[in-house]
Design a protein around this nucleic acid. Structure first.
Lengths: 230, 230
DNA sequence: CGGTTCGTTGATCTATCTCAATTAATGTGG
DNA sequence: CCACATTAATTGAGATAGATCAACGAACCG
């Protein structure tokens, strides 16, 4: 971003708290931090649908669909670029390539949802956690946030459970199995992948569904396209 | 469709068998029948991601993402409108309103994925089945395929299990509970909702995530927009 | 330094799975 | 239109992955 136009503001956690049923007037590009999308059931349990990493636009659908059907919460303090729908409108009309990039972004989103469905529906707790770790690690790596097989991991065990359809207690026990198998180290909010191939195999991880193709992902393409245009 | 242009052909089940990893050159609009999208795990179990009903474009993402990350199968004989990507390209460029409608379609798709994730991750077998029945009934109703609280239901118990992350046996037992609770009748490939409110409550069903809003859904809007343009 | 969140552990319980048959539909060729 | 083959639904018995409940220790935070 060379210059910040008046209607593109950066905000912090506060603005990020979009809620189910809301009619937001902006979309958001996450610049720093980690967030998640989720929904609460009638009985009060929570399902997390995705973790949002720097470079993600996680609100694009609010631009087209108008009402939110889920909520967003931060896992850490976040910095976001707030993009008013009016601006989205203008950008996508003036720059079809960007519109295409944002569309692609939302489609990769959907592909990730499908993969999570597969995990939750058909994989064991051990496989699920391994798979998720591969995914988050890979996506962080793409945006340059991995170093020495290690990434910042602010996701609590309770949040992991809510993402994977597991109880906190079972997550805890399964994490210990992954540690015992020498696949990972996890402490102080830092995840280190000790045995990359082992972890991939444990999680049946195949990154095709992320549609990374070239080094640049849909997400970074999208963010890059927006930056260029500013 | 007033006239069928040369590059818009209707096809049957055969053409529909798109496979994981393929690079399709067409997208498909389902005209008649029921299909599903799915993926097979390494251990050979299957997860169904969605059921596709008449009016659905279920391949839009292949237009943008190029490679398929899942497969499509028919549940019944189907009739589809095959739309070459070249045509998609032309249509979306010439008619931004249609591009927008198709985009919206893919976003509703994603919303449905999220809801399924919630079901699989956090709802009981009983709730899951009730919820799915509400969804499919509602969507069929929107396209005029429901009559007297009753719809054609070609989904086998094994397929239900694959969609909901349950075993066939458990699906069978849970269906009998739903029958015993007088919520539904299900036989001869026909589902009758005997107690609509009861079923909705059992499944915690709230149709907001389908983004139907007005009588016309994103799906029908989309199909209608395409038909108009032909 | 006291309160809150997060991680860990033990004991018990249960929803759902697996395996294995059996019955009921559905379809097909002769 | 019947005999056989195949697919779909049903039932029983036993096994288990993961849930729940209840503590407790550790880390973090103002």
């Amino acid at each position: 971003m060379r210059e910040t136009p008046p209607d593109l503001m950066t905000g912090t956690a506060a603005q990020l708290e979009a809620g189910d049923g809301d009619r937001p007037s902006d979309s958001n590009l996450l610049l720093e931090g980690m967030a998640c999308r989720y929904k609460i059931t009638h009985d009060g349990t929570r399902q997390i649908f995705s973790f949002q990493l720097p470079g993600d636009i996680f609100d694009a659908q609010s631009f087209i669909l108008e009402t939110m059907d889920h909520s967003v919460a931060t896992l850490t303090p976040c910095k976001v670029a707030v993009i008013p729908h009016k601006t989205m409108e203008e950008i996508t009309e003036a720059y079809p390539r960007i519109a295409r990039a944002i569309w692609k972004n939302t489609l990769v989103d959907a592909a990730v949802f499908r993969e999570w469905m597969l995990s939750i529906g058909r994989r064991s707790a051990y496989q699920r956690i391994a798979h998720l770790m591969c995914e988050v690690y890979t996506r962080l790596d793409v945006v340059g946030l991995a170093e020495d097989n290690s990434v910042h991991w602010p996701i609590t065990q309770a949040e992991l459970g809510d993402a994977l359809g597991l109880s906190e207690v079972h997550v805890n026990r399964t994490l210990m199995e992954l540690r015992a198998a020498k696949l990972i180290t996890l402490n102080n909010s830092r995840l280190t992948v000790e045995d990359c191939d082992g972890l991939k195999e444990a999680g049946q991880f195949d990154p095709d569904y992320l549609h990374l193709k070239r080094p640049a992902s849909a997400h970074t393409e999208c963010a890059a396209a927006i930056r260029e245009s500013l």
